[in-house]
Every structure is written in C-alpha cells, then in structure tokens.
C-alpha cells in the first residue's frame, strides 16, 4: 500500500503548531497513522517550533519560581509516567489513531441505501464534525455540499473522483466549492474518516428526505 494523496503542508504545520481544532486534528492524525512521510514533515515542523521557542525573548519568572520548583521536586520522589489509557471504542475499525479508543463508541447507522455513518463524538465543542462513513462497492456518494473545509481519510476500500483514485491512507481535502462525483470502486466496503467543518447539505429530493437522519 502506498499513500498517494497527502494533506497540504500548511495543515501539517498547523497540526505541529497545535493550532488545528480537535476535529481537524483527528483528520490529520488519522492520515499520519499510515504515512511516515507526513510524520517526518510534522516532526520537522516541531523542530521549527523548537527554534521558535529558543528564539523568543525571555519574560522574567515570578520571584522564587525556581526555588519553589526545587521544593516541589523534593516532595516528588518518584514521578511515574501515567499509563496510556485505551478504551474499547472503535477497535473494530483499523487505521484510526489510538486516542479515539477512549472516546464514547457509537453504532453504525443507516443513512442511505448502502451507506452507513458512525459519529465520533468529541469531548469538547468543535467547529469540525467527525464521523466514519461506510459505503458498499459501486455506491455513488450522495450528492452533497458543505459550507466549510472537508477532510476525508481512507481507512479501507477505495473511491475515485475527478481528483484521482483514493485508497487506504490517502487524504482528500476540499472546500465547499469542490463538486466531486465520488464513486466507490473497491470490491469491499469503503470506510473513511471524515472531518467536516460547517453544515452538510444533501442535494436532490432523496437528499432532502435523508437530511434529518444525518444530523449528529
């Protein structure tokens, strides 16, 4: 498996700087699970962050800050590194970042013929909604428009649109203006993680009927 479609470098820089909202962070983190090249870009960006930090002018610490810290170290004889907590959520979906395992799980929901959706509920309010989308082979994705940025990360299966073929690990990034005719072209289900800003609007009559079902 080779990753062909990567997030724009700006997103990787913002990821490293810690300025993405949590929903977008999850979108990028999911791509990083399968992409060593982008992991290297993020790491490089963290080095730029280190250079930034070292280059900042110092602000004097409060009086006695170091002494207070030293007393605190005396009291903390052995500091244990907290264990990584992993919950059971989303364990059945390979390719997701581990930290999603501690989120509340949710079941797949039918939203259209051959299309299921599974919301990922974030522990904090975010302008970006995150969900898994599972579509059967041969499905055309429901025509939709959205008002903000959309990240799609392929976990299994594949789809194709005018922008190319997207298989496992690939990252598709679009704004509301992009109108893709998306078709699932794998012989197995295509499961994607989608991080979407703004409102999703389904087009056409069927879309309008389904609209209430897709609210998360």
């Amino acid at each position: 498996m080779t990753v062909h479609h990567h997030p724009p470098d700006e997103l990787l820089a913002m990821f490293a700087a810690g300025t993405l909202d949590l929903g977008q962070h999850i979108g990028v983190a999911t791509h990083l699970v399968g992409c060593p090249k982008c992991r290297a870009v993020v790491r490089a960006m963290e080095h730029v962050g280190g250079a930034m930090l070292t280059g900042l002018p110092p602000t004097a610490m409060s009086d006695g800050a170091l002494e207070a810290m030293e007393r605190r170290l005396d009291e903390t004889s052995r500091t244990s590194i907290p264990e990584r907590r992993r919950g059971p959520a989303f364990r059945d979906v390979p390719g997701l970042p581990d930290f999603l395992n501690s989120y509340p799980d949710s079941p797949w929901r039918w939203i259209a013929p051959k299309v299921h959706l599974r919301p990922i509920r974030l522990p904090e309010p975010s302008a970006t909604r995150v969900f898994l989308l599972k579509s059967s082979p041969g499905t055309r994705m429901i025509e939709h428009t959205h008002t903000g940025l959309e990240m799609t990360c392929v976990l299994s299966g594949s789809f194709v649109h005018a922008g190319g073929h997207f298989g496992p690990g690939d990252f598709d990034f679009g704004d509301g203006s992009v109108d893709h005719d998306v078709r699932i072209n794998s012989t197995e289900d295509c499961i994607c993680l989608v991080a979407m800003q703004g409102d999703l609007k389904l087009n056409g009559m069927i879309g309008r009927l389904l609209q209430p079902l897709i609210r998360m």
Binding site: H25, V33, G34, R39, A40, R84, P168
Partner: peptide, 30 residues
Amino acid sequence: ETELEFQRDEGPLPDAGVAASEIEARVRDA
C-alpha cells in the same frame, strides 16, 4: 488528553515501518 492526541500511532501498515530514529535523522538532515 492532549498528550495522547499527539502521540503518533504508527499503524500496522506494511510500508509504514520506518523507525522513529530514522525519521529523526532524515528530519535533521532536511
């Protein structure tokens, strides 16, 4: 949770097996 969110999980994908130390060396050179 923030710390966990930034731990980069290296997925069990066939060609993702690049060691962290190798990435570090690459980053330093670049």
